[in-house]
Design a protein around this nucleic acid. Sequence first.
DNA 1: CGCCTCCTTGAGTTGTCTCAATGAATGTGG
DNA 2: CCACATTCATTGAGACAACTCAAGGAGGCG
Lengths: 242, 242
Amino acid sequence: MQPFSALAKKLRSHLDSDFDLPRLLASLTTRSITVDARRELDFGSRRNRAYLIDDGWACTYKILRNGTRQIVDVGIPGDFIGARTLLFRSRDYSGSSLTRAVLYEISPRMLEATYQLSPKAGGALLWAISQDQSILSERLVDLGRRTALERVAHYILELEYRLGAIGSSGGGHFVCPLSQTLLADVLGLTPIHLNRVMRELREQNLISYGEGRVTILDRERLADLSSFDARYLDGPGLDPER
Amino acid sequence: MQPFSALAKKLRSHLDSDFDLPRLLASLTTRSITVDARRELDFGSRRNRAYLIDDGWACTYKILRNGTRQIVDVGIPGDFIGARTLLFRSRDYSGSSLTRAVLYEISPRMLEATYQLSPKAGGALLWAISQDQSILSERLVDLGRRTALERVAHYILELEYRLGAIGSSGGGHFVCPLSQTLLADVLGLTPIHLNRVMRELREQNLISYGEGRVTILDRERLADLSSFDARYLDGPGLDPER
DNA sequence: CGCCTCCTTGAGTTGTCTCAATGAATGTGG
DNA sequence: CCACATTCATTGAGACAACTCAAGGAGGCG
């Protein structure tokens, strides 16, 4: 696979079609790192580090004293991970690869250099970081005010949408390496309850799943059920005049 | 009050003591806007707008179809509000002042110009935006994995810490314009349950409150109860070597 | 073969919600 | 200055969504 192609796809609508973002980024980043599935990510010690996920999935999470875990971000190809605390002196969360993954280390200098070489490309990167924040705040609404069923439905639609933006979903189905335990830790539920909710969605013929794949059977009812409104993802299909 | 003094205080440890951030920002921003309490904030229509809160409190929130509300950010003086979607074409949340407030409109250009005039000041602003994101992700952990009692205790400590950074809290007490209904909407609880939790904290002699003031009576037990770890706020007192 | 991880289901418990209601404080208009 | 509406904090009683504990089956792997 071409390096940076997932990010380039995600930012397609923010850049001229003849702009070669991968080439620009390749000139600015150090080599890539390949990690196996379920490996802890090294976010640095003296200085915080962050990554661009080029291939595979990764996440950041916090473990609480009572042993529970909350996954804060789930990153797919083209997403940044750990960028939140790049400028911090400290850090109080951990990260892990979810699948075998290819990562590029990023630094504040790289963002800066991108901006100077091409303000438009720099702006596109900032847009991507904004989108991460917007996803985070939508998840906050999930956990604060939506039922488990709504949460799960909403999250499946979000994943499908995000994967679609990088060409990794189509026809309503996608490959999802998240186990039910992980999904529960993303959505603030117990694995047991998540399992029951998944069954409910399956029994209502809204989704089907198995063997690491999820299929959306009735997008409309699913979106209605979870009041999914893709505006928080600011995708290219959205009307700028609204 | 000096314009931008709250922000300057918050960023004190990121800038040289003789650096005049207020003067730099004054040269870059348009005039201030003063709004009464409980006024909807205008985040723009064609192009999204964002603000720096110079005085007073403000928030952003989403209202769901079932009528419930989730407050996503609560901004105090020196915080940005609405910056999350500054680069977006769309927006799906609302904002409101919580008290009478003084706001400065900010734009991507302003951030850029600050950066060019002083990379250090620009970096400090980016740090502040990172902190907002870090606060958001800590709240996510609250809603996902902490009990109501832990959440409330944790949030009170956070508020006291943040207010302390701008010189608006001391001796364990601070002025808090959030009604119990608003606090419930921040923490994903019903006002009724929040009220019971507040009573519990009061009866355990952990806090006292009333007439818009909150007093922390036993910080240690409160921090222990909620496993409060201020690292996510990346304050100046934290050891950079950790 | 034994040992994982993952998914699944049952039964009982509990944290939080819903519905209902009251008193205090504040503001408004007649 | 009173009648009225509104917001806010508070409490009780009952319901339910999600949790805990317990257990079993399917599949992968050394």
